[in-house]
Design a protein around this nucleic acid. Sequence first.
RNA 1: GCGUCCGUAGCUCAGCCGGAUAGAGCAUUUGCCUUCGAAGCAAAGGGCCGCAGGUUCGAGUCCUGCCGGACGCGCCA
Length: 581
Amino acid sequence: MYRFVDTIVTILDRELKGRGLPGLPEIGRGWIEQPPEPELGDYAFPCFRLAKALRKPPAVIAQELAAALQGALAAEPLLTAIESAGPYVNFRVSVEELARHTLPAILDGSSFEQSGRVRREKVMVEYSQPNTHKAFHVGHMRNVALGDALVRMMEYVGHEVIAANYIGDVGAHIAKCLWYYRNHRTEAPPAANRGEWLGEMYTAATRLLEAAPPAERKTYEAEVSRVLAQLEAREGEVYRLWEETRAWSLEAFHEIYRWLGARFDHWFYESGMELGRQIVEDGLRRGILVRSQGAAGMDLEPYGLGFFLLLKADGNTLYSTKDLALAHLKFERYGIERSIYVVGTEQNLHFQQVFKTLELLGYAQAARCQHLSYGLVMLPEGKMSSRAGNVILFSALRDRMNAYILSHYLEPHRGDWSDAEIAETCRRIAVAAIRYGMIKQDPAKNIVFNLEDWLVSEGDTGTYLCYAYTRICSVQRLVPREPDPRADFTLLTHENEKRLVRELYDFNRSVHQAAEQLRPNLVANALFRLAKEFSRTYTTSSVKNAENDAVGDARLALFAATRAVLERGLHLIGIVPPERM
RNA sequence: GCGUCCGUAGCUCAGCCGGAUAGAGCAUUUGCCUUCGAAGCAAAGGGCCGCAGGUUCGAGUCCUGCCGGACGCGCCA
């Protein structure tokens, strides 16, 4: 991954060390940059930091270095030119060597074998965490897109990953939903989409409660508390209704994940976290946790994290209590070394408190707990709110995307392609559009979700990436030879071809950086750059109409490698591109 | 009030843990389909990188203050 950079570092180091000057800083990979314009070169070495030790202006140093390195250049087949430009020494790498180093490794798949690059860890990624009895909307999809991508990326760089879901299947919201369902519902449950319908029941419940006059409201709230108590008793008619309706929601979630192609290895349920109470009581006995105003929690004031409430004054557990239990289970039962939580930014403080509390309770793994926090999905008119009823539900989004893609692009193929292929192609494109849109931005930032914009299939979109992929497929259908890893890469002479090779070469580094920083958007960005370079090259470098077969072979290898990286890269962000569209 | 995050082109966003004239997409304008898919490519216009200081050879990037926005700050999740 650093072969060319390391070569440059070695050459520079040898040259500078040979001068025997004291006070010269150590040169490492971090010094080497990429010039802003490809015409300048492929790698650059800035000389500013040598100015002090060498007591010369950077531009003079650059000039002298470039001159002194000509000998090394002649002996080094990886490099074709070393020139100074102002305070920089620019290096040009051999396209042939770059291609020879990059393309065959992609074509035989070895480029995708990353094991050994990082210390292998057993890591759990917890994501999605939907609440049953509530509707699943576009805001929830950002979480799934981020979490699932992170799972795939971590595996790609060599970790053992357990993908976990954590279902919110207890709590006041469910009591409200079931209260409305039993006392105020006017329709029978539908045969299909019962999950979303339950969400409507919940929304109707909150509306009814909010709109009720004070006296009536009090009655309602008493009824809701009674439902909650019956739920906590874990038996009886209300409990059985909970079991039944809970299953409707879970069924809906499974359908969504299936459609999106998201994977979960383990499912945790909030209803299964009773252990939390014991952990708190144990912490109290050990004097680590404290009582306060009748409640119990952890005093995190010394760490600037306030007081972390863990048990209510009435003795009931909280979300925080269950998070301790969940962490305990993850550590003890699944033996993980590292734990990543994909949860919205609004819980930043909460997870700082959880991690610090785990540490103080003695869990060594607390040091390897991370919160991948992400911003809200906003509508152009503002925040989405299920209470206000201005959410875009999953099914609505899926239906709108399907309708758009079918009518604009796929209907003409009806009859020519099988209905099954049309449906599957449509799904893949819709998933690509949504997942890419949810991932391409920095997780920390809010996303403005404008449905009309998301339907558009142009520009920096998942559709564009799929389109690039299908064009390569198309080329390979028309030129049905096997790509030759030993093709003559000196024939890749066009600037576009070279830039494409360079993009392919850089891809793995982007994925590693993305995994390290927990930023799937870096993979998305790298894929867009790659697709862009391919689309450019596509217009200048025909395979079918190449000057001769040798040139065609070189280009075919280049395109086939691009296809392989696109496919693997898209897979990393959960996108399966269609072969044609 | 305190804390965290964000502020870059008309709009939506990149900007590689400090480096060369700040880049995309959308929108606007203009070229390119009898030659591998135009969901594409090429090009143009459009910027006191919120404001003011500071550190540095060098700041969109780091530090401080201010302005604007989002989120959070004990019995919700």
